[in-house]
Amino acid sequence: MAIAEPTNNSPSYIDKLVVPGDVVLDLSSMSNQTIKLGGGLRQDCDSITAMKAGMLRFSKPNKYWVESSQKRYVPSAGDAVLGIVVDTKAENFLIDIKGPALAYLPVLAFEGGTRRNIPKFEVGTLIYVRVVKANIGMNPDLSCMDASGKAAEFGPLKDGYMFETSTGLSRMLLSSPACPVLEALGKKLSFEIAVGLNGRVWVNAAAPSTVILVSNAIMNSETLTSVQQKLMVDKLLQRTQ
């Protein structure tokens, strides 16, 4: 299909939707360039093809990747995610981050963590962690510290309510400038929110009704445009007040 015009494909696919099998770049036309491939792309001799359905993105100087939204999460290094403790072993905590395999959180990966003050997490604790290593075939490694070794708000989350969304929605919630849903909600209500790139969102507020409102508003905003999102939030707020 796309084999007919190989050379014209590279500029036209950026920021456009691609499906598995689309050839997005032809390497024979570019030489002496290093290109970094992110998620969703694979190299097939001289052409780069998309593996997932989504939008092709490019960031200077040379990074290409496909942005898609799923219900499951593919761990990648540097992401901040919400995990649930499944088991405690001698050296690690086993954490579920909605990926293909459980992740390991070393017991010492906390700010000021020594053998003497290992935190005790019971099964089912919700933790905000950072993915350190995510190689294919190995269980991902996590840490409750940021790159410089500070705690930086990582750690267990108390109270509140957690719900699951798709990875695309959680990326939208984390985008800057602020996502329309959060902005509209934040104007009228006060709440605390933690968003994990693996599709888990945690909300906490003083009153349970606020939490329920916020969580339902976010879950409804998956397919709405920013204008629709504002309208939806206004309607929800009106109904409860």
Binding site: D87, D96, L102, G124, T125, L126, Y161
Partner: peptide, 12 residues
């Protein structure tokens, strides 16, 4: 363990 749906203490 990796494939079952999990619930956190916070939700309960």
């Amino acid at each position: 363990l990796a494939s079952t749906w999990r619930m956190s203490v916070n939700e309960k």
